[in-house]
Design a protein around this nucleic acid. Structure first.
Lengths: 95, 95
DNA sequence: TCAAAGTGTAACGTATAACGTATCAGGTTG
DNA sequence: CAACCTGATACGTTATACGTTACACTTTGA
């Protein structure tokens, strides 16, 4: 697992889907078939890449749906790691 | 993306964590630090592997947290694909 | 200068999901 | 028969993704 704070996926989307293609947020949201509000929340880290959104991103901007979701996976894992105490859990070894 | 119906992750957990180690559901839930209800729901496909659960599974049964979550990712993607119509979305090409 | 466009975000509603406690019904087993 | 394991329910909390509507701000072009 990564030790550093991974960027939220919205930053990657902003860089590679909006700025690189010189799109507006409004137009990109329309192309994805979601509201501007939904896409803005994703871009600004207030929501994550859902499985449905991964399919939309894949269709409109390319890359695999899995690729988009793995981005989110890394971020979610890092966040979950911050807020959970697993010190009391013990490894179960095979009999 | 896989074309076939992927098993829900609970089946894999049941095979590799419960039956292979000859554990009871109750004891495995205790080891994971969750209630029997929560773990039973996971085993029987009524809930998925959350990021937090992935960390618990990794600590107690081994494998990477990413590995557990990718299992869930494949399943979620397959399900999302079933219930969404993206035919109207068009690929945006680079300028 | 003024209007239009782009943007972030708020309120409010929907649906889904993961977790908990408490409880019940059914099965197995010593 | 009693103890245990299991699946499932009802009820609650918290969180998230998505929608519509609306507001305030900035930038840009006629």
């Amino acid at each position: 697992m990564r030790m550093y704070n991974p960027p939220h996926p919205g930053e990657i989307i902003k860089d590679f889907c909006i700025e690189a293609l010189d799109l507006t947020v409004t137009d990109a949201a329309k192309s994805l078939g979601v509201t501007r509000k939904t896409f803005s929340a994703l871009l600004n880290g207030r929501s994550g890449i859902s499985p449905e959104m991964a399919l939309r991103l894949s269709k409109v901007f390319g890359r695999s749906p899995e690729g988009w979701l793995k981005l989110q996976l890394q971020y979610d894992l890092w966040k979950a790691q911050q807020g959970i105490d697993l010190k009391s859990l013990k490894r179960i070894k095979a009999a």
